[in-house]
C-alpha cells in the first residue's frame, strides 16, 4: 500500500531562492493560485448576466453573499460590516481550498499548518489592528476586562494575552486536523480497494460515502473558521 502521508508532501515545481532562503514555487503554492483563480472564474461565470430578479446561476453567489453578510451582522454587529469583504474572502478561500483538495491529483494546502497558520496569524494581526484603530487605547481593556481589581493585573494580563495568542493556534489545528484525517482515511481505503482484489468493491462503497461526508466537512470547517474569526473580530471591536 502506498504511504498515505505521501499526498501531503510539498514538492518544488520551480526552484527559486532569495538570499539563501528557499522560496520555490511549490505544488502547495500552485494549489493556492489555482484556488484563487477558480473563485474568480466561478464567480465571474455565475454573475455574467446580472438581473434584478436573480437567475438560478446568479442566486448561488447571492445566497453565499447573504449568508456570510448575516453571519457578520449577527456576530460582529453592524460596525463589523466594513470588514465584510475580508471575512467573505476568508470563507471563499478556505472553502474552495478544501473542496479543491478533494479532486484527484490536486493538493490540499489547508492540510498544512504553515499555510493555515499564516492565514490565522494574518487574521489575528488584522483583528488587533482593527481593534486598536477603533478603540485606540481602550483596546488594552482586552487584557484587563472591566470589574477586575488592579491587584490581580499581574495574573490576568498574561492569561488574557495567552488566550488571545492561542486563538490562531486553535483555529489552525482544527482545520488542519480535519482536513488531514479525511484525506488519510480516503487514501487508506483506496489502498484496501487494490489490496482486496475482487472484494475491493466494499471499500469503494465506503469511499463514496466518505467523499460526500468530506465535501460536507470541507464546507463546514470553512464555515466554523469564518464564524470563529467573526467572533474574535467582534471581541476586538467590543469591550467585554
Amino acid at each position: 500500500m502506498a504511504n498515505p502521508l505521501e499526498q501531503f508532501e510539498i514538492k518544488p515545481l520551480i526552484n527559486l531562492s532569495f538570499k539563501g532562503y528557499d522560496i520555490s514555487f511549490s505544488n502547495s503554492a500552485l494549489a493556492m493560485c489555482l484556488t484563487s483563480v477558480a473563485i474568480v472564474i466561478v464567480f465571474a461565470l455565475l454573475l455574467r448576466k446580472r438581473t434584478i430578479v436573480p437567475t438560478l446561476m446568479q442566486s448561488v453567489p447571492e445566497a453565499l453573499y447573504e449568508f456570510i453578510y448575516n453571519l457578520v451582522k449577527t456576530n460582529v454587529g453592524k460596525g463589523g460590516l466594513k470588514y465584510f469583504s475580508f471575512i467573505f474572502c476568508l470563507f471563499l478561500y478556505i472553502a474552495m481550498g478544501n473542496v479543491f483538495g478533494l479532486f484527484p491529483y490536486s493538493f490540499t494546502f489547508t492540510s498544512h499548518i504553515a499555510a493555515v497558520g499564516a492565514l490565522s496569524v494574518l487574521a489575528l494581526i488584522f483583528n488587533i489592528v482593527v481593534g486598536v484603530y477603533n478603540r485606540k487605547l481602550g483596546y488594552l481593556r482586552t487584557f484587563l476586562p472591566k470589574g477586575i481589581p488592579y491587584i490581580l493585573a499581574p495574573l490576568v494580563v498574561p492569561i488574557e494575552a495567552i488566550s488571545l495568542l492561542s486563538k490562531p493556534f486553535s483555529l489552525t489545528v482544527r482545520l488542519v486536523a480535519n482536513m488531514t484525517v479525511g484525506h488519510i482515511m480516503l487514501k487508506i481505503l483506496g489502498g484496501f480497494v487494490v489490496g482486496l482484489g475482487l472484494f475491493g468493491f466494499v471499500p469503494i462503497i465506503f469511499q463514496a460515502l466518505i467523499i460526500i461526508f468530506e465535501l460536507f466537512i470541507a464546507v463546514l470547517q470553512a464555515f466554523i473558521y469564518t464564524v470563529l474569526s467573526c467572533i474574535y473580530l467582534g471581541d476586538a471591536l467590543r469591550s467585554h
Binding site: 488566550s163 495568542l165 493556534f169 489545528v173
Partner: peptide
C-alpha cells in the same frame, strides 16, 4: 461532537501557546 472537539482544542492550545512563549 464538533463543539466538543473544538472545546478540547481550545483547552490544549492554551497550554501549548503558554509553553511555547
Amino acid at each position: 461532537a464538533s463543539k466538543g472537539f473544538q472545546m478540547s482544542i481550545e483547552l490544549v492550545s492554551g497550554v501549548f501557546v503558554g509553553a511555547a512563549i
